[in-house]
Nucleic acid binder design. Structure first.
Lengths: 336, 336
DNA sequence: ATGAAAGCGCTAACAT
DNA sequence: ATGTTAGCGCTTTCAT
């Protein structure tokens, strides 16, 4: 094993309390003493045992990232943003899979987190998700990214505006029959999806176009799903001349489907996605880009703020702005 | 706060030692007693404090994932594989950024991990990386994925074979001037890159083609880098009719570069990548696919094996197999 | 099969 | 400014 605080104390000729204070940068330590302690600690290769200090202090010095998926681009990028914010401090990052329907967890989330993390950042999990909700009820410090919340601090884009922006762009190009590739079919209050859809409907209505349910299909926010959804749209009686996909990955699937049918995105069917996925350029995909890593960073900062402020902390809603990036997947309809 | 072990002990009418044994499934506990303890713990919503049990036992019950990047596809996917393996047990997953040249860390890795994790899985970090090497010297339980090692257990593809496979495929199509988009220019023993390059050279030589350094450029394993590398190749006196890219993401960049120059991948220049990236299908990219998530899972399992076996553990080398996926980015040269 | 008790290595009053 | 000391909540011998 390595050195303990007592060994450092003895070697430096002070008490363990002084070592503890000196090393943590607490006040009321003579500068000369501090230097001596720091030097001694270094010489003995001393590092405080996290378990011991956590047990004694009651703080874990770790924040958990709660995510349904770790490999998907949006999630991985948010995680990297959180990591970015944390490496500036001494906090550990505990990765916890939550809410992936394919890998349900047996132990309640609150129990898995209790005395394991001081707080958590939840990715794309709405505040009324059962496990998240339970966390909030237990007053577990939490911040969510990907949806706005009234209960805890949140960082998100304006999803309604996003839907409006994408759809209005297609309308401006001259499209009238604008399809929608949405996410999940079971609408369990997944706000992101609902809001983007509302924006889509609003834009249509505002331009005198009546939204038609027959122009919507569902792609579960995956590439494969987007592919299937596009195939389905192509089989409907009226096929859209443009399609708004609620995520870039679904749009990628839609592109593949179009290709299979001998159709060209931007020529035969216009396409707009959401995310600003790195491969959207490769795919020449028009997209509403969101600052994903930055959102993770902001969420982590908000959480740290809450942790340092304590009880009197007031939840904040941070709405970050999106940017429409126009590429060749969106062009006027053929006739024009 | 929540219940402590003593409260459970009192409520169940046993000692704390018995509660501890009963809840952890240790032997020498009467079945009736165990049931009573478990039931009491449940009723009191008791969960053992990790800090306390870690301090007392000396084990942390967490494994660290060491990665230079968390958002890039390969890394994120390995992480998800590790997470997959861990959710089957009660281990925590600590995410640690290591070896990202843009975000150097001040504290030595060994100190950041000491008494914080029982072991670690390192992603795409060679065993002679300074920090990793230091870890191994401290006998810190470690497994690496992405490169094979003689010092610790490792999971990787055969990179030489990968290079050979990709190159031979291009040769079989009739190409002779086959370029290479490699990764880093400074060859600090990054085996993955060197091995794939060796495979490339071998395939060429074996087919009577003399490798020419003027057909190689470097793309730092990023899309932007791949784009620049392709542009550079196109400016050389002899331009290749085919290019082997050491990663799919660099190939994506190469495709973009070709497009900018009015060239079509698979028609004007054939392209092969490595990874089996999800967007390789979208890009119609021929690629040598590796089972990335599975590699992460295997590495995590090997680590757990080492942790449970202890001293007598013998490091294993697991070589997983790759698969050439042929798409339209690779076709015979124009003349043929 | 169960209990008593001694730590694990630190932090945080409190005292000086 | 520094030292003393009492825990934090467990696990683990060692008894019985």
């Amino acid at each position: 094993m390595s050195a303990t605080i007592r060994e450092v104390a003895t070697a430096a000729g002070v008490s363990t309390a002084t070592v503890s204070r000196a090393l943590r940068g607490l006040p009321y330590v003579d500068e000369a003493t501090r230097r001596r302690v720091v030097e001694t600690a270094q010489r003995l290769d001393y590092v405080a045992s996290p378990s011991a200090s956590r047990l004694a202090s009651g703080r874990t010095g770790t924040i958990a990232v709660l995510t349904p998926y770790v490999a998907r681009w949006f999630f991985a990028t948010v995680i990297s943003g959180v990591a970015m914010a944390l490496t500036e401090g001494p906090l550990d990052l505990l990765l916890v899979e939550v809410g992936n329907p394919e890998r349900p967890s047996t132990v309640p989330l609150e129990q898995r987190l209790r005395s394991r993390a001081d707080g958590a950042v939840a990715i794309a999990l709405p505040d009324d998700h059962p496990e998240i909700s339970q966390l909030i009820e237990h007053d577990f410090p939490l911040t969510v990214v990907g949806s706005l919340s009234d209960r805890v601090s949140s960082v998100a884009i304006n999803d309604i505006e996003t839907g409006r922006l994408a759809t209005q762009h297609l309308i401006n190009l001259g499209h009238r029959d604008i399809g929608l590739i949405s996410g999940a079919t079971n609408d369990d209050g997944f706000a992101t999806q609902d809001d983007r859809t509302d924006g889509y409907n609003e834009a249509l209505t505002r331009n005198g176009i009546t939204p038609s349910p027959s122009l919507t299909s569902f792609g579960s926010f995956t590439r494969e799903g987007g592919e299937r959804a596009m195939v389905e749209l192509l089989s409907r009686e009226t096929t859209p001349t443009a399609v708004f996909c609620l995520s870039d990955e679904m749009a990628f699937g839609a592109i593949i489907a179009l290709r299979r049918h001998g159709l060209t995105p931007g020529i035969d069917v216009a396409l707009v996605g959401v995310d600003g996925h790195p491969q959207s350029e490769l795919a020449n995909l028009t997209t509403v880009a969101q600052p994903v890593a930055e959102m993770g960073r902001l969420a982590a900062l908000a959480l740290q703020e809450k942790l340092s402020v304590g009880e009197s902390y007031v939840p904040s809603k941070q709405s970050v702005s999106v940017e429409l990036i126009v590429r060749s997947s969106s062009a006027p309809p053929k006739g024009n």
